[in-house]
Amino acid sequence: KKVIATKVLGTVKWFNVRNGYGFINRNDTKEDVFVHQTAIKKNNPRKYLRSVGDGETVEFDVVEGEKGAEAANVTGPGGVPVQGSKYAADR
């Protein structure tokens, strides 16, 4: 997939743990970017499923997906693991 931007910061608008996807609002352009659970590179080690939490600040790359921009290599700011959704089960 073609990389559009790297190391972008954004805020998770919403993320559905059961369906495994959601949207991140970019801090720079204010665009909403699709995020799939497979794009989460550093999950919270205490969580079973990969997820990001609503309102969480994340860092990610933006790539060209089939339906427009989507997030890739999602981590917390500075490459730390994401916090994850409060609806995702703990280990």
Score class of each variant (00 low, 15 high):
Phe60Cys: 04
Phe15Lys: 01
Val63Pro: 00
Thr57Ile: 14
Ala5Pro: 05
Arg26Ile: 08
Phe15Asn: 01
Ile24Phe: 02
Glu56Asn: 03
Gly53Asn: 14
Ala88Cys: 08
Glu31Thr: 13
Val12Glu: 01
Val74Glu: 01
Leu9Lys: 15
Pro77Met: 10
Thr29Glu: 03
Asp90Met: 11
Lys67Arg: 12
Pro77Asp: 03
Asn43Gln: 11
Lys13Ser: 11
Asp90Phe: 09
Glu66Phe: 14
Lys86Trp: 09
Gly68Pro: 01
Val58Ala: 02
Tyr21Phe: 13
Ala72Cys: 09
Thr57Gln: 15
Lys41Glu: 13
Arg50Gly: 06
Phe23Ala: 02
Gly20Trp: 02
Val63Glu: 05
Pro81Asn: 12
Glu64Arg: 15
Val82Cys: 14
Tyr48Thr: 09
Ile4Lys: 08
Gly55Asn: 14
Leu49Ile: 06
Asn16Arg: 03
Glu31Lys: 11
Asp54Arg: 11
Ile4Leu: 09
Asn44Leu: 06
Ala71Asp: 00
Ala88Thr: 08
Val52Gly: 02
Glu66Pro: 15
Asn73Cys: 08
Lys42Cys: 10
Val33Tyr: 03
Glu31Tyr: 05
Thr57Gly: 06
Thr38Tyr: 07
Thr6Met: 13
Lys86Asn: 09
Tyr87Asn: 09
Lys47Gln: 09
Asp28Ala: 02
Glu70Leu: 11
Lys86Ile: 11
Ser85Ile: 06
Val82His: 04
Asn27Met: 12
Lys7Arg: 10
Val33Ser: 00
Val52Tyr: 03
Arg91Ala: 13
Arg91Trp: 08
Asp61Thr: 08
Asp54Cys: 15
Lys47Ser: 08
Glu66Asp: 15
Gly84Gln: 04
His36Gln: 03
Glu56Thr: 05
Gln83Thr: 12
Asp61Trp: 04
Val80Ala: 09
Gln83Asp: 09
Pro45Tyr: 12
Tyr21Gln: 02
Ala5Tyr: 15
Glu31Ala: 10
Arg46His: 13
Trp14Glu: 03
Phe15Arg: 00
Glu31Gly: 09
Val52Asn: 02
Ile4Pro: 04
Arg91Val: 09
Val8Lys: 06
Asp61Tyr: 03
Gln83Met: 10
Asn16Asp: 04
Gly22Ile: 00
Asn43Asp: 08
Thr57Tyr: 14
Arg26Glu: 02
Gly53Thr: 10
Asp90Lys: 14
Glu59Ile: 13
Asn73Asp: 14
Ser51Pro: 05
Lys41Gly: 09
Tyr48Cys: 13
Pro81Leu: 07
Val74Ala: 02
Arg18Gln: 13
Leu9Gly: 08
Thr11Asn: 12
Gly79Trp: 04
Ala72Lys: 14
Glu70Gly: 04
Lys7Asp: 11
Gly65Val: 09
Gly65Leu: 04
Glu66Thr: 15
Ala39Tyr: 05
Val52Ile: 15
Ala88Ile: 07
Ser51Ala: 06
Pro45Lys: 14
Gly78Met: 14
Thr11Gly: 03
Gly78Phe: 10
Asp61Glu: 07
Gln83Cys: 14
Gly22Pro: 00
Gln83Lys: 13
Glu64Val: 11
Ala72Arg: 11
Asn25Asp: 03
Thr6Val: 13
Val3His: 08
Phe23Met: 03
Val12Pro: 01
Ile24Gly: 01
Pro77Tyr: 06
Tyr48Met: 11
Pro77Ala: 10
Arg46Ser: 12
Gln83Val: 09
Ala69Pro: 14
Glu59Asn: 04
Leu9Met: 11
Phe60Ser: 01
Arg46Pro: 04
Val63Asn: 04
Tyr21Ile: 04
Gly22Ser: 01
Lys7Asn: 13
Ala88Pro: 06
Trp14Cys: 04
Asn44Asp: 08
Asp32His: 03
Arg50Pro: 08
Glu70Ala: 12
Asp28Trp: 00
Asn43Gly: 11
Glu70His: 14
Lys42Asn: 10
Asp28Pro: 00
Thr38Phe: 07
Glu56Val: 05
Asn73Gln: 08
Asn27Leu: 13
Pro81Ala: 11
Thr38Ala: 08
Val17Tyr: 06
Thr6Cys: 12
Gly78Lys: 12
Phe15His: 01
Gly55Cys: 11
Gly65Lys: 06
Val74Lys: 00
Gly20Tyr: 01
Phe15Thr: 01
Val8Asp: 02
Asn25Gln: 13
Arg18Ser: 15
Ala89Leu: 12
Ala39Gly: 11
Gly68Thr: 07
Thr29Gly: 05
Pro77Ser: 06
Asp61Cys: 07
Ile40Leu: 07
Lys67Trp: 05
Phe34Gln: 02
Tyr21Arg: 02
Val63Gly: 01
Arg50Thr: 10
Lys1Pro: 03
Glu31Leu: 10
Val12Lys: 00
Pro45Gly: 12
Tyr48Asp: 11
Val52Asp: 02
Leu9Val: 14
Ser51Phe: 06
Gly68Ser: 08
Gly22Phe: 01
Glu70Gln: 15
Gln83Ile: 09
Gly10Leu: 00
Tyr87Leu: 09
Ala72Glu: 12
Gly78Trp: 10
Glu59Trp: 07
Ser85Gln: 06
Val80Asp: 14
Lys13Tyr: 03
Val33Cys: 07
Val17Ile: 10
Lys1Gly: 05
Ser51Trp: 05
Tyr87Ala: 08
Val35Tyr: 02
Thr38Cys: 09
Ala88Gly: 14
Glu66Trp: 13
Lys7Ile: 02
Asn27Gln: 13
Val52His: 02
Gly55Thr: 06
His36Trp: 03
Gly68Ile: 03
Arg46Asp: 15
Ala71Leu: 00
Gln37Cys: 07
Val12Gly: 02
Asp28Tyr: 01
Lys41Phe: 14
Ala71Glu: 00
Ser51Tyr: 06
Ala39Lys: 11
Val82Ile: 09
Pro77Val: 15
Val58Met: 01
Glu70Cys: 13
Gly79Ala: 08
Glu64Thr: 12
Lys42Glu: 15
Arg26Thr: 05
Thr11Ala: 07
Ala88Val: 12
Phe34Thr: 02
Asn44Thr: 09
Ala88Trp: 05
Lys7Trp: 02
Phe15Gly: 01
Val35Glu: 00
Tyr48Gly: 11
Gly84Phe: 06
Ser85Met: 05
Gly84Lys: 04
Asn43Met: 11
Lys42Val: 09
Val12Tyr: 01
Val58Arg: 00
Trp14Val: 03
Asn44Trp: 07
Gly20Ser: 06
Gly79Ser: 10
Asn27Tyr: 13
Gly10Ile: 00
His36Lys: 04
Arg46Ile: 14
His36Ser: 05
Gly10Asn: 01
Arg26Met: 08
Ala69Trp: 11
Thr57Glu: 15
Phe34Ser: 02
Ile24Ala: 03
Val35Ala: 04
Arg91His: 08
Gly84Ile: 04
Asn25His: 10
Ser85Asp: 05
Arg26Tyr: 03
Gly22Glu: 01
Gly22Thr: 00
Val17Arg: 08
